[in-house]
């Protein structure tokens, strides 16, 4: 039988990697909720959660347990199937992005050299982009299926916001891709290991990308899809129990993944500054790289929270104006200038 002839050990290796990466991102998302409350408390000069466990570190478990045991309500007038599909899609698309992030350099275990990346495809960034553009379906389907005017309004806002900021994000990425000449995230990290980090060449590009990432994750100051002061609770108003938990959770996973993407694209990925990784043993280099990437990611997650608890929310027309009239022209100018400089240097 050569029906399905391929390397089974390779398949098992990838499956194990997928399970590890997904559980790690879930645990990190759990502790992001805790970190969010602690950071908010710190910024507002409060104590924050400190009851469950030492320094309150068991708080996420308590929150999760509470969400699981809450009564599950599906509104009678809602579309039942789509109502359940909404949070599933939000979670799925949040998880799928981590497939192309290179978490570290190669690891040598049991005589095999294992890539710390689920798939090194040559369209890495575009894959991330594609999955992000799917992410809006979770919000739209959930908001529509709830059969509630506030939810629908929030879903429409969410969709137009994500589409508008995707454009500026794509344009800011094109400038970066002109420099790297490759769409594979692994190649981009390796180039940065050899030379300077991309932030040195693309400071404006990074700024634009960061603002767009805030908008794509529906984070403050762009959290209009869940603006509680005008839309009650936004697109997940009718949701309760763990389905609500899925929506909230997917936001934190998105934050984790977009921090990972930013660290990879602009801040060298798993590269440690001023250290020649090739001199270290293979496994040591991999672990050091992983720790470096995680530290960068945690910094960006902190930045997300810092922004949320510092800036007030935009008004909706301001949001659209910033997206279309400020971000896109800036990104276009950045792209043209980069293109001109690349052309001059190559000649």
């Amino acid at each position: 039988m050569t029906l399905l002839a391929f390397d089974w050990i390779f398949l098992i290796e990838k499956l194990v990697l997928i399970v590890i990466i997904i559980s790690v991102s879930l645990v990190i998302a759990m502790y992001e909720t805790y970190a969010e409350r602690k950071v908010a408390a710190w910024i507002q000069d409060r104590v924050g959660p400190d009851r469950a466990g030492p320094w309150g570190i068991l708080q996420p478990l308590a929150d999760g347990g509470k969400l699981f045991f809450k009564e599950e309500i599906i509104p009678n007038s809602s579309n039942k199937f789509l109502f359940v599909l909404g949070p599933c899609l939000a979670m799925l698309t949040a998880m799928m992005t981590c497939a192309v992030v290179p978490w570290s350099s190669k690891l040598e275990l049991f005589g095999r050299s294992i890539d710390m990346q689920i798939a090194d495809i040559n369209i890495g960034i575009l894959y991330v982009f594609g999955v992000v553009s799917m992410g809006v379906y979770g919000i739209m389907i959930g908001g529509w299926a709830s059969n509630n005017k506030f939810s629908l309004m929030a879903a429409l806002r969410g969709a137009s916001q994500v589409i508008s900021y995707e454009l500026a994000m794509g344009l800011s990425l094109i400038a970066l891709l002109m420099l790297t000449g490759s769409l594979s995230l692994k190649t981009i990290v390796e180039q940065q290991q050899a030379g300077l980090w991309n932030i040195a060449y693309q400071p404006l590009g990074f700024l634009l990308f960061f603002v767009c990432a805030l908008a794509e994750c529906n984070r403050a100051p762009f959290d209009l899809p869940e603006a509680e002061s005008e839309l009650n609770m936004g697109y997940h108003q009718e949701y309760s129990s763990m389905k609500l938990g899925f929506y909230l959770f997917s936001e934190y996973i998105n934050m984790f993944i977009s921090s990972a993407i930013m660290a990879t694209l602009f801040f060298g990925g798993y590269d440690v500054p001023f250290l020649d990784e090739s001199k270290l043993a293979v496994n040591v280099a991999a672990i050091v790289g992983l720790v470096a990437l995680m530290l960068k990611i945690f910094f960006f997650i902190f930045l997300f929270m810092w922004v949320r608890w510092t800036l007030p929310r935009f008004r909706y027309d301001q949001l659209m104006r910033v997206g279309w009239k400020n971000m896109i022209p800036l990104a276009l100018a950045n792209m043209i200038i980069t293109a001109a400089v690349v052309l001059l240097i190559k000649k």
């Binding site: 575009l126 799917m134 739209m140 529509w144 969709a159 589409i163």
Partner: peptide, 26 residues
């Protein structure tokens, strides 16, 4: 044709169908 595959998803499934859904929901 990986590029075509992902562009098909980004443009059609990601952008145009969202607008379709938008209009139908409204």
């Amino acid at each position: 044709a990986q590029f075509l595959a992902i562009v098909n998803l980004i443009v059609y499934a990601g952008a145009i169908m969202v607008l379709f859904l938008f209009v139908i929901m409204l």
